[in-house]
Design a protein around this nucleic acid. Structure first.
Lengths: 143, 143
DNA sequence: GTGACTTACTATTGTTTTCATAGTAACTCA
DNA sequence: TGAGTTACTATGAAAACAATAGTAAGTCAC
């Protein structure tokens, strides 16, 4: 796949980083609190070569940051940056699609820790308050 | 990558279909109004073998539907299903992340066709009204 | 201080996917 | 009849992926 990071479309640009399932799942796990190589590896069942590559790419792109948590032996973990945390709405909107269209059987669910209500994500346009997809959209190419 | 469609996590299940950049970009273009093989091919610069494979998979999974638009010569186009249209919020939330974190240079922008205001997507929890990520979350594994 | 264990990887080697390009089938149109 | 359109399929090389084993730098138990 060609490099998407200089496309005018911001969706394409984002997919340059996070447009593969492993990266998305790593970011999901990172947002769930995982930080260590072996935690990711066990959670995902990913080959270590793959994981090394993905973690380096995500770190380089600023979604994760490497933090040393032990000097002896030298050990690093991967913590979310702000950009990484900002992926949470993306993950939730993907999850909401899944609940609607692939929702059978046993599923992991998410609750607001304070109110205890199940989280029901909707993506709205802050300008109009309307849910995205309920009103016609005009696309403007640059220039 | 192993098959994700039976994972308990709905994010993972969704990524089984749409967890690669080509599929996402096809769905983006389909939501922008493209329907024909050659339109997708030219828009994306994708190899035809790839495109055939992705379109079949997306059709099989119910995100697109094949519709015959000419009997002689026999010609099919790919139209969005409801499930495909429901991906629009996902695409917009990805785009919103891109605008915030990869927003430099010339970018394609989206406007509300009626009000003319630029669309500014936020993913909120319908239950609490709060933006996803601003409140603590509790994860509940099945059973 | 020796052996078992932990953690974060790298090396290696097949297999699978992807990519680019060319070609084909079934037409239409001038 | 010959060029053009559209939706593909065929082919081979290049790249990515996956499984497994191994390594580096330690700690811990006895």
């Amino acid at each position: 796949m060609k490099n998407l990071s200089n496309e005018p479309c911001l969706i394409a640009r984002s997919l340059a980083l996070v447009g593969d399932a492993w990266s998305m799942l790593i970011m999901r796990d990172a947002n769930a609190g995982l930080t260590r190589f072996d935690d990711f590896r066990k959670s995902l069942g990913i080959a270590p070569t793959m994981l090394t590559g993905r973690l380096s790419a995500l770190t380089e792109e600023g979604l994760l940051a490497k933090r040393r948590y032990s000097e002896r032996p030298p050990r690093d973990e991967y913590v979310l940056t702000e950009a990484g945390r900002d992926l949470l709405p993306v993950l939730f909107s993907i999850g909401a699609w899944g609940r609607k269209h692939r929702g059978g059987g046993k599923v992991t669910r998410f609750f607001d820790a304070e109110t205890g209500t199940e989280i029901d994500p909707v993506t709205i346009d802050r300008a109009t308050g309307a849910a995205v997809g309920t009103r016609p959209i005009r696309i403007a190419a640059p220039e």
